[in-house]
Design a protein around this nucleic acid. Structure first.
Lengths: 340, 340
DNA sequence: CTTTGGCACTCGACTGTAGCGAGTGCCAGT
DNA sequence: ACTGGCACTCGCTACAGTCGAGTGCCAAAG
């Protein structure tokens, strides 16, 4: 099977034209708009091969060609050069993120920025608790049997949970609890706390043990439950850009998927060594998103990765541009986090 | 102008049928499906009058009638009896909300519940800070020049902000700051704190004054900025239920509006004495929502109102059912809040 | 062996016509 | 005041015909 350079050029031209015009592209239009240096007939032959190999297909017999998911994949892997961002875009990113006052703000600004720049749906995961380290634990007495546990992580995340104590507790004992917990847990990565928690209970003075036990339970729950991860979303209105056909006719499944935190986490939360990931159409494990593509990446201060972010759009998207934007935004956010 | 009982009955029948079938309803179908006791011709005469008065209209000359916004308004005001919830629904609400562990959880469950029961887009405002009272202020030292201010409100809301001090501070001074702030502010409604804050600064010992000043600034910011209000949203996928025609052909403007917190707050946040509010189509002040209806209400423990909640859907919605559901859910949430 | 021009073919998109039927407005009769 | 009857409107569907973009194939040229 020969996929010589020209055939690849043809595929690239088809992808680019289709992404731009959103209409099936024919051989004639192709030679007109790109310097391929051959006649339409030749292009037709190449297209026949590309179709046979499953990179493009014809919506109808007498229509032009459209890239398949496989075609996009090849395009992304081998045919697209990453578009460097324009200085204006870089400046926009910097300016937009610079004003953030706290983590919440950073995440919100980031997700809006991504949505705006890519004109697609953007998703940003808050720094994962499991990947954060404990910076401080605070216990605030609410009543004699109720404490508010406030956990501050080094990533800037702050979580609070109500603790219902088994028995009334004295103010001094609360201080002791706090001191003990902080001594044992500060600086520890949260994913590594569970084994330490038992030790924490065992080493507590006997009279504090019941309180410490419930406290620990709550602490562990904070980690385990869905509470653990938070997510911000923006740009859903962008789904209506372009024709409905982009998503096989219905936004329904997409909107449904976007409502499920679990789904979103799966989308952008599975952070791997490979920094940037593109999932095209069928490659998505989530059925509802078989008509969409997702570009996602991890981010974090320095080389550490504390969370994921990404965008979701039609398979017919500007991959080079989107990839460049996502990468750039993630890097800026990482730098921002490193400053704290 | 005569709008006798029968004409009103006809209008009611039209609204009910149209809501159910989503198709223009004609005179014949009307007499068949409702016990009006008169012939189609008579109904036609009545319909002519109703149309003249602007309560219904014909999409095309040879089509049936469709209610106008004004028609729905009349229906809601005078023709619909509130549907009592089924016991099953009541139980569903109770069961669904009972498991909530904290405020975040309550709000999330509520918004999902509303979306599910009404099969529309649900919006829930977190208890407004301005309407809450301070229960406790906590200061957590992060470094010598940084404090984390954690504010716990009686509504269960917890807000935190980073405070950058003008100069390093001693641990004991932090305790003093905390004591002073709590003495002055605990129990105060947050909307009434601004005047007190100045006094708080003035009464601080001179050496604490700079720190107290920045602390106060941050405290006030928390109130003023958009941070003040938070909102949860669910059920956007329900927008795709029914034909696109429900929203004049495009979800775009709706989705855009739903992304703007400010817009949502305007929608459900303007809580007035009148507990429940229905805005139909054109009655909406927000242009993007001229094609939608909003049913909203305030909620809170007892008679106090601390926030708003509501649902948004096509003008062609089941008003009696939606109203009943929103009212019931708001009441349950209020009771839940009262228990804390 | 590759490329090219030519040609027949396919098939979707659009146009125009015709018939159907739901629904109306009006009117004369009860 | 209500009703039955009737002519009329007009959107919807089906069908036929035309147009044109785009294809596949083939024979000829490089």
């Amino acid at each position: 099977m020969g996929l010589d350079d020209r055939k690849l050029a043809v595929l690239r031209a088809i992808v680019e034209d289709y992404v731009a015009t959103q209409e099936p592209v024919g051989s004639k239009a192709l030679v007109e708009r790109h310097q391929l240096g051959v006649s339409p007939a030749t292009v037709r032959n190449d297209m026949a091969v590309l179709e046979e190999e499953g990179f493009i297909r014809q919506p109808h017999t007498s229509a032009g060609r459209v890239p398949t998911d496989r075609g996009y994949r090849l395009f992304v892997d081998r045919l697209s050069r990453v578009k460097p961002l324009s200085p204006a875009e870089r400046r926009a990113i910097e300016r937009f993120l610079a004003g953030a006052v706290d983590l919440d703000d950073v995440v919100h600004r980031t997700v809006r920025l991504l949505a705006q720049l890519t004109r697609q749906v953007a998703v940003v995961q808050y720094p994962s608790l499991a990947r954060s380290r404990v910076r401080h634990l605070e216990l605030v007495p609410i009543s004699t049997t109720r404490l508010m546990l406030v956990m501050i992580a080094d990533t800037g995340r702050v979580e609070q949970r109500l603790v219902e104590l088994p028995a009334p507790i004295l103010a001094d004992d609360v201080l002791d609890l706090r001191r003990l917990a902080n001594e044992k847990l500060v600086g520890i990565r949260l994913s590594e706390t569970p084994p330490l928690v038992q030790a924490l209970i065992d080493e507590s003075p006997p009279d504090l043990r019941p309180a410490m036990t419930t406290l620990s339970t709550v602490l562990l729950e904070t980690l385990v439950e869905r509470h653990e991860e938070r997510i911000a979303l923006a740009g859903t209105a962008n789904l209506t850009r372009g024709s409905l056909l982009d998503f096989h006719g219905s936004l329904r499944p997409i909107l449904e998927a976007l409502e499920e935190e679990v789904v979103l986490l799966k989308l952008i939360g599975e952070v791997e060594p490979s920094t940037l990931r593109v999932r095209i159409g069928d490659e998505n494990e989530i059925d509802n998103l078989r008509a969409a593509s997702v570009v996602s990446t991890g981010y974090g201060p320095g080389a550490t990765i504390v969370g994921g972010m990404g965008v979701l759009g039609p398979t017919r998207m500007d991959y080079p541009g989107t990839i460049a934007t996502v990468r750039a935004v993630a890097r800026y956010v990482g730098e921002l986090l490193a400053q704290n």
